[in-house]
Amino acid sequence: MNKVLAQQPDAASAAAAPVIEFRNVTKRFGALTVLDDFNFAVAPGEKVTLIGPSGSGKSTVLRILMTLEPFQEGQLTLAGIPYHEPNGKGPFRASDRHLHQIRSHVGMVFQSFNLFPHMSVLRNVTEAPAAVLGLSRAEAECRAIDLLRMVGLADKKDHYPAQLSGGQQQRVAIARALAMRPRVLLFDEPTSALDPQLVGEVLGVIRNLASEHDLTMLLVTHEMRFAREVSDRVCFFDKGRIVEEGEPERIFTAPAEPRTREFLQSVLG
């Protein structure tokens, strides 16, 4: 199964250079400062979960990484590439070509799946590899079928998104993101829009991904048990900063910060 995903650089050299690095990043929406002097790094292959109260800026972190939102101050690098170009113009301070290059290393799985409703499942997964990576239809389909098999939906390839359950749609969305062979995969509350009985199948797919591949994963989730299982590191995020981070066992059993404790109490009940 490894062959369907991108080759990752070997772990030794990776430990030195983080694949994602936020340095003193500040992000504002008008007068509202969402990220305030934010520092955060993720090592290659690492699985990191962001937890925190609603409105604390977790999605914003992912959306900045996906170049869906610009930021105002500080530096952000992905695989060593800075997001801002020295003479970059526009809100992103970078050319379209530069953003294109950055995005070629990142994929994203959205809370509301965002599948293309007018394309079949297969087409959803093959469209980008064919159009953006320049794969032939046959190659793209080959890759797509492998991935659909991996998420357990090969038999649904000719269905349309509206004919699938939420859980199935989200699994297709995961396959769609993987088909671009990103080094970093972002998940923004991938199960929040799902009925409780469908959450398991999606978490199962993500869990397999996490355990079997050295893909770098950054997750935002409210599924605490799941976070504990799959993450190498959990970051508790509040008011645009990381309040506390560490191994999941420690964060969940012995949080040091009172704010973390409070939050965990409120979500774990």
């Binding site: 869906l68 995005r103 959205f110 509301s112 980008a128 953006v132």
Partner: peptide, 19 residues
């Protein structure tokens, strides 16, 4: 969200519009 998904998949502007 459709435009964002297209952007996340690195589609160009023309492709996003046409497809």
């Amino acid at each position: 969200a459709q435009r964002e998904a297209a952007r996340a998949l690195n589609f160009g502007r023309v492709h996003t519009l046409m497809r």
